[in-house]
Amino acid sequence: MTESTAPRRGAARAASRRGTLVGWALLAPALAAYIGFVVVPFGMGIQYSFYDWNGVGVATWVGFENYAKVFTDATLLASIGNAFVLIIYFTIIPVGTGLILASLIRSMRAGAFSTISQAVLFLPQIIPLAAAGIAWSWMYAQTGTINQILGWVGLGGLARPWLADYGTALPAVGLIGSWVLTGLCTVLLLTGIGKIETSLYEAIRLDGAGWWREFFTITLPGLRQEIAVLVTITVIAALSSFDIIYTSTQGGPGRATLVPGISIFRIGFTQSDVGLASAFGIVLMVIVLAVVLPIQRLSRSSR
């Protein structure tokens, strides 16, 4: 090492250290907020789950008793089952519909129409979920818009209070989620289609392929990563749903639309059983991870 290069390397190391310190200084507020609002409450939730506590009085250690209640209580198990049913409406329908809409919008090759359709489809995503739940509960009422439309087209015999009927309440709530999430799926998939090489479409058209063959041969494989992201987002939305259901049915009628989010709210704030609510929240987190992590692993392995 020459005398001229040694000071330069020392200055470079000093500059690197200063850059690291500046980076940590900029990161510190965000890290402190994350620890204060995520890590600490999460740790407290785990702690509370091992106690019988009403949130005010003295807490009593009960070990895994709260977790045993989660897996033996029929009402709590039913709410988990309803959450998995909602995956059909929050994930399968929006992603499937989004794939078809995105492919059709792209095939039309109309710039203005594409922009307007994306804006219209994405609009439900920016509406507060509580407001969406209230608006749809009006539409689902006995004298609401949906029953009026059925009467206009001669299907008045099908009219019913959709959210008050045990057989239709959960599908009706699920369709609200489908309406909210379809726009997000369509816009993200359209963005993904824009990244696919146009030469692939041109080549398959030269072979005389139609829309269906083009969709399954080029579009669907090219959107594998976008689909994995959307499935992850929508599955989490289904399993942790709260806003739409609370504002539209509050888990009724009976337990027809009861989901874990509503159950945790009732147990913690109505029944004042903080320990059981915390245990159910931890179980819900584990269920979400157990469903989402394999999806992420499959998406990475397919790259």
Rank of each mutant, 00 (worst) to 15 (best):
M1A: 14
T5N: 14
R8T: 12
A11D: 05
R13H: 13
A15K: 00
S16D: 09
R18H: 04
G19P: 05
G23I: 04
L26P: 05
L26C: 03
A28F: 04
L31H: 02
A32L: 11
A33T: 10
V40P: 02
P41E: 10
F42P: 03
F42V: 01
N54P: 07
A59R: 08
V62G: 02
N66F: 00
N66V: 11
N66G: 01
Y67T: 06
F71P: 00
D73Y: 05
T75K: 08
L76Q: 11
A83I: 05
V85M: 13
I87K: 11
Y89W: 12
I92G: 10
T97A: 15
G98K: 13
L99N: 04
A102G: 11
L104K: 11
L104A: 06
R109C: 06
A110W: 14
F113Y: 06
S114L: 03
S114P: 05
I116R: 09
V120F: 09
L121Q: 11
F122T: 04
L123E: 13
Q125L: 10
I127C: 14
I127Q: 11
A130I: 05
I134T: 04
W136P: 00
I146Q: 01
I146L: 12
N147C: 07
Q148R: 13
G151F: 08
G151W: 01
W152A: 09
W152I: 06
W152S: 02
L155M: 12
G157S: 12
G167A: 15
G167Y: 12
V173N: 08
G174A: 03
G174W: 02
G174N: 03
I176L: 10
L181E: 07
L181C: 03
L181Q: 08
L184H: 12
L184V: 06
C185P: 01
C185M: 07
L188A: 14
L189Y: 05
K195S: 13
I196M: 07
S199P: 11
Y201R: 03
E202T: 08
E202D: 06
I204V: 09
I204H: 04
R205E: 12
A209P: 02
E214Y: 01
E214W: 01
L220D: 07
G222E: 08
Q225T: 15
I227H: 06
A228G: 15
A228R: 09
V229I: 07
V231W: 00
T232Y: 00
A237Q: 00
S240E: 11
Y246D: 08
Y246G: 01
S248R: 14
T249G: 03
G251V: 05
G251L: 11
G254Y: 01
R255G: 08
R255Y: 08
R255T: 07
A256G: 00
I262M: 15
S263P: 11
I264G: 07
G268K: 12
F269R: 02
F269M: 01
D273T: 00
V274W: 04
G275W: 00
L276Y: 10
A279S: 09
G281S: 10
M285V: 15
M285N: 09
V286H: 02
V288K: 07
A290S: 13
R297K: 02
R300I: 02
R300L: 05
S301Y: 15
S301E: 14
S302I: 11
